[in-house]
Computed example of a mutant assay.
Amino acid sequence: MKAIVCNDWGLPDTLRVEEVPDPVAAPGHVVLDVKAAGVNFPDVLIIQGKYQYKPALPFTPGNEVAGVVRAVGDDVRGFKPGDRVIAFSAHGGFAEQLLAPAAALMPMPEGMDFDTAASITLTYGTSHHAVVDRAALKHGETMLVLGAAGGVGLAAIEIGKALGARVIAAASSDGKLQVCKAHGADVVINYAKEDLREAIKAATGGKGPDVIYDPVGGDYSEPAFRSIAWRGRYLVVGFANGQIPELPLNLALLKGASIVGVFWGEFTKREPKASLAGMQQLLGWLGEGKIRPHISARYALADTPHALNDMAARKVTGKIVIHPHA
């Protein structure tokens, strides 16, 4: 089979399409024909050795997959060849086939397409864990989403609206903010043009947001945190900007605010039942039309470096996917 292979830590252009042996269905595992694989910002970091999780070289990146079961291990129950499934694996997704633990699979809901199925686990799982579990966002509260046009940002907007919250979306261009409004944002802020603190003040009547969702880091984190409401919750989701901010802790004291870490991958390992319950709620919302992944581009397997470069350059809105068999 063909697969994208990372032989050394580096930028996306160092990745190569290689012919590698077909995987074999070991005990407890399933082999899938990959129909679509979601691309996420952590993929850009993993191939550089800059992520919390560092696989052994060489490896194939990509962890968010939708496909069809090709073969199952002898002891696997509940899945059979021909089943359409969603898989979340540590790596291996940017390939024509994937060997994944059976425990990492979910049946695809009836009527769901492969692109949507490959776009629901990491971004929506992360944002559900952040907004519902860690922040406990309530009906009628206000949430500010930074980097709102990205995959996790759009997911956070939709989840906030599903919970009955008022959502303020902040992004770096008017085009990105149009996408945010199309996915439910009540107010938008272009922080490339506007003073972020003044815009937040105007949007909240001076009260500040109850929850701030920050997957970006960098220069906008501190002004956002200075604007948070009393008893606000500041969600540390990631650092797409590349800079880890140093928030003055006296701000948390003065606002009675909480700085809350969000690490969905570790959450799924430590609290699998809670993670599964969250995914079931997401699939329910998907069926009701309350969430709908925005897939802005599709790439062939050979174009995976291009896809990752677009992600690194923050040119992506919503989700992008790889089609290994295109």
Score class of each variant (00 low, 15 high):
103 A>W: 09
35 K>M: 14
15 L>V: 10
199 A>W: 01
250 N>L: 10
10 G>W: 08
281 Q>K: 15
299 Y>D: 07
73 G>W: 12
248 P>M: 07
82 G>A: 11
209 P>G: 09
84 R>N: 13
305 P>Q: 07
199 A>N: 02
257 A>Y: 02
100 A>R: 04
289 G>D: 09
201 K>L: 11
74 D>W: 10
133 D>F: 12
260 V>M: 13
324 P>Q: 05
326 A>K: 13
251 L>W: 08
271 E>V: 10
130 A>Q: 02
166 R>E: 12
95 A>T: 03
90 A>S: 15
136 A>T: 11
195 D>W: 09
17 V>Q: 12
252 A>P: 00
216 V>Q: 02
270 R>G: 03
57 L>A: 06
264 W>K: 05
326 A>P: 02
322 I>P: 00
123 T>R: 13
29 H>L: 08
182 A>F: 03
49 G>Q: 13
6 C>E: 05
142 T>R: 03
241 N>A: 14
321 V>S: 02
90 A>K: 13
24 V>T: 14
306 H>Q: 15
270 R>T: 14
69 V>P: 06
236 V>L: 11
23 P>E: 04
62 G>P: 08
273 K>P: 00
304 T>I: 11
26 A>I: 05
165 A>S: 02
57 L>F: 04
43 D>T: 01
180 C>I: 10
93 G>P: 04
103 A>T: 15
14 T>K: 14
218 G>C: 06
163 L>W: 03
